[in-house]
Amino acid sequence: MSDWGSFVDETPPERPHEPRQAAYPSGSATGADWGAFVDDVHEPPGPRTPQSPPPAASPAGAPTPAPEVVASLLEAGETLWAQVDGTVAVLGSGCAVTAVYDAGPDGFSGWRPVTVLDPAALTVRPVPLSLAEPSPGAATSVAELYSDTESPDDAWPRRAAPFPVGQGPDVEALLSRAAEEERARVRAEAAVAAQRAEAELAAARRESAERAETAERHARAREERAQEEVRRAGEAAARQVAEVRAESQRQVAAARDEVAQAVQQWQYRAQQAEGERTRLAEELNRANRASLQRLVLVGVLAVIAVVLTVVLKGS
């Protein structure tokens, strides 16, 4: 613990077989850059002008980001760490910003928290450092905080104590209790599984009964629909038969009427033909009588002519 937060004239002791490491990062020139006070034994940093900013704190080989990029990442009121030297501060990325104080620089340089004032202007305000001694009991004293509470013997490895034979609980009782608990757990799980299986079986039976009832209801509905269709088909067939029978009767009646009308027409035509035959027979008789009369008249005229001829020749 003495390596951290060392004060003036404090040098951490070197441990054997361990290389001495610097108490400050490789990016800074001296250890005075880390929280150095005014009366530090190291050479205090002199006042620097804004044209000569402190060394960049960016990792080795990493390029320093542009101020515009840093300004876009900062937020007003944000508190972060920076390496402050007067009015110049360098962020951890290596970007230099302007440190603004309320009443001038306080004389503390090195890494310290700062509050961002204006991200666009890259201005920060160093957080004031309190140098007053805290009241007793308000905090841990510096001597107690940085005291080495570990004894030199604690650095050596400790060996485990031998196995406590005959001490501790009864292993057989533990195993028996664990076996009984496992049996009880298995029985409980089996009971729960049996209850679950019974519930699932009851649900399956209910579902099967509901499905059977639904299927029976659907079958009855289909049977009723089929009977209704058969009845409708019978009624339709009866109507068709009646219609066919009525149509056939109508056609037969129409045929009979047509035959009767034809017979009547034939009878009328036969009567007309008989009357025409009678008329023709009468006309034939009249013609025969007329022709006979003509023949008699012609014979008489011929006789008269002959007689006249004879008479005329005799005279």
Rank of each mutant, 00 (worst) to 15 (best):
W4M: 05
G5V: 00
G5K: 01
F7N: 06
P13R: 14
R15S: 01
P16V: 00
H17D: 02
E18F: 00
P19G: 05
A22W: 02
P25V: 13
S28G: 04
A29L: 06
G31M: 09
A32K: 01
F37V: 08
F37R: 01
H42P: 01
E43K: 12
P45Y: 02
R48V: 15
T49R: 03
P50T: 07
Q51S: 09
S52K: 04
S52E: 07
P54Q: 02
A57D: 11
P63N: 06
P67A: 03
E68T: 08
V69G: 01
S72Q: 11
S72V: 01
L73D: 05
E75Q: 13
A76L: 01
A76I: 03
A76W: 03
E78L: 08
T79L: 09
W81L: 08
A89M: 10
L91N: 02
G92A: 15
S93K: 10
G94H: 08
A96E: 02
T98I: 11
P105G: 09
F108V: 01
R112I: 04
P113F: 05
L117G: 10
T123L: 08
T123D: 06
V124K: 07
R125A: 14
R125L: 10
P128Y: 03
S130K: 05
L131Y: 10
L131V: 04
A139E: 06
T140Y: 04
A143N: 13
L145H: 14
S147H: 11
T149V: 03
P152H: 05
D153P: 02
D153A: 13
D154Y: 08
A155C: 06
R158G: 14
R159T: 14
A160I: 10
P162L: 06
G168L: 09
P169Y: 00
E172F: 06
L175E: 04
E180F: 03
E182L: 09
E182Q: 04
A184W: 00
A188G: 00
A190T: 14
V192Q: 13
A193D: 11
L201F: 06
A203P: 03
A204R: 13
R206Q: 11
R206A: 15
S208N: 09
S208M: 04
A209T: 11
A209I: 02
E213N: 03
A219N: 02
E224C: 13
R225N: 01
E229D: 10
V230Q: 08
V230K: 09
R231M: 11
R231W: 06
R231E: 12
R232M: 09
R232F: 12
E235I: 10
A236L: 07
V241D: 14
S248N: 08
R250Q: 15
Q251Y: 03
V252A: 15
A254F: 04
V259T: 13
V259P: 07
V259S: 15
A260E: 14
A260T: 15
Q261N: 13
Q264T: 13
Q265P: 12
A270I: 00
Q271C: 07
L280K: 05
L280S: 09
E282M: 01
E282V: 00
E283T: 15
A287G: 12
N288E: 11
R289G: 05
L297K: 00
V298A: 14
G299I: 04
V300I: 11
A302Y: 00
I304Q: 13
V306S: 04
V306Q: 06
K313W: 12
K313L: 15
K313T: 15
